[in-house]
Design a protein around this nucleic acid. Structure first.
Length: 156
DNA sequence: GCCAACGTTGGC
DNA sequence: GCCAACGTTGGC
């Protein structure tokens, strides 16, 4: 069992959207970074824990908990000419981009970036490193446990 | 809208 | 294989 942090722009897919989706499961479309793709392809397993992170928005931070709900499979948006994620250089026989399905478990209070940065237990989190842009990053069990057990239950 | 940081591209 | 130019990410 591994743990991950996955960034989503809430304008596109928020934790509320995911919870409202059929089966609470959404296809994690639009990953166009090889390192993030490789995490999905090589390291993710069904049932892995996911911190659902809202990025590029007014209040960036962890907004919910989710689970990996499928193995990696080709992202259909790479073949859709009308999609912003269309990739003319990918071909059907050998798709370049993959996705996994993600099942939303529950919404949490918003744990903002600044609050995350205040936690000495989280100082090594990849998401908090300077210049980090990876949309999918591994989370250590210690980081996961601290966030889920110590931060999330706390009231603001 | 700004811009630092980073990943990708492509000429050589 | 190097690396400058370019495009993107994402917080502010």
């Amino acid at each position: 069992m591994r743990y991950w942090l996955m960034k989503s722009e809430p304008d596109e897919a928020s934790i509320d959207d995911a919870l409202a989706a059929q089966g609470k499961t959404i296809a994690w479309t639009g990953v166009r970074n090889y390192q993030a793709r490789n995490f999905m392809r090589d390291d993710m397993r069904i049932g892995d824990g996911v911190l659902f992170y809202h990025s590029s928005c007014a209040e960036p931070g962890i907004a919910g908990l989710a689970e990996v709900a499928s193995a990696a499979y080709p992202d259909p948006t790479q073949f859709d000419r009308k999609s912003p994620y269309y990739d003319p250089k990918s071909d059907q026989e050998n798709p370049r981009w993959l996705l996994v399905d993600v099942k939303a478990m529950r919404k949490t209070r918003l744990i903002g970036l600044s609050e995350l940065r205040e936690q000495s237990q989280l100082e090594d989190m990849i998401i908090l490193r300077r210049g980090n842009r990876l949309s999918i990053t591994p989370v250590t069990p210690a980081e996961w446990n601290f966030i889920v057990n110590k931060l999330i239950p706390k009231k603001t």
